[in-house]
Amino acid sequence: MAEASVAGGYAAGEGRKLNLKGLASVLAPWALPITLLVLWEIASQSGFVNARLMPAPTKIATTFWRLLLDGSLFFHTLASTQRAVIGLVIGGGLGFIAGVLTGLWKPAETLLDSTLQMVRNIPHLALIPLVILWFGIDETAKIFLVSIGVFFPIYINTFYGVRTIDPQLVEMASVYGLDRKALIQRIILPGALPSILVGLRYALGFMWLTLIVAETISATSGIGYMTMNAREFLQTDVVLLGIIVYALLGKLADVATRAIEKRVLVWHPAYQVKSGSAK
């Protein structure tokens, strides 16, 4: 944008040309997906690919509309989101507490860390048979799996964030008479926050992944159930729609964390491009 305004000073015609160039650069990332969609549509309409196995985008769009109107899409999305959020709160909360505890308090690290590092290496989806034995196939099983999935990324990154606080700042804080509570509140937790947010982003990825698998195994609601159910009846359009919904939910979670980052890390030089250049 700055480039365009500088060039605009030389000649009006130049400026317009560069504006078109700016528009092109905005549209460029969409070019590939749109081309693929068009090709896909043509391929299934012309019968080049089997419409039963790979229905056309327009067919998926009408399915989306149908499921939206009968309320089932909303119902299943809500069920999935609910499990995801409850699991995230439980697993993420515990991971955060454990991370802060082990980061700040040496005995907790000695006691917990090596055990947690060992358990961490078990793929949590390997627990599915055990989880079904323990909790049956109801909500608890899915929430348990999601909680385990999000626990470790948040735990590890919180621990790391707390441990890598600049010791010079901690020394300064003690020279200036901050007590332990103020030190944790004003120095350690805000300092660990960038790292904790990295953990949160990883956790959100694990959260959806775990949920998809958990819901396809045993459920009576949720996007995973919707797609597995559709597979039984060879409704490929619904299966594809489910996949798209997962993608959108994942993207939504990512956008949300970015927004949080932008808000809570305003102090960070990386988020201060504007105020820095205005000086």
């Binding site: 700042l169 020394e171 300064m172 901050l178 004003r186 805000p190 102090w267």
Partner: peptide, 20 residues
């Protein structure tokens, strides 16, 4: 100190009043 050791996530005034 040799370095200012300001807390990056606190505004200037909060840094000065660090002991609150």
């Amino acid at each position: 100190f040799q370095e200012a050791r300001l807390v990056p996530w606190q505004r200037v005034i909060e840094n000065v009043g660090i002991a609150r």
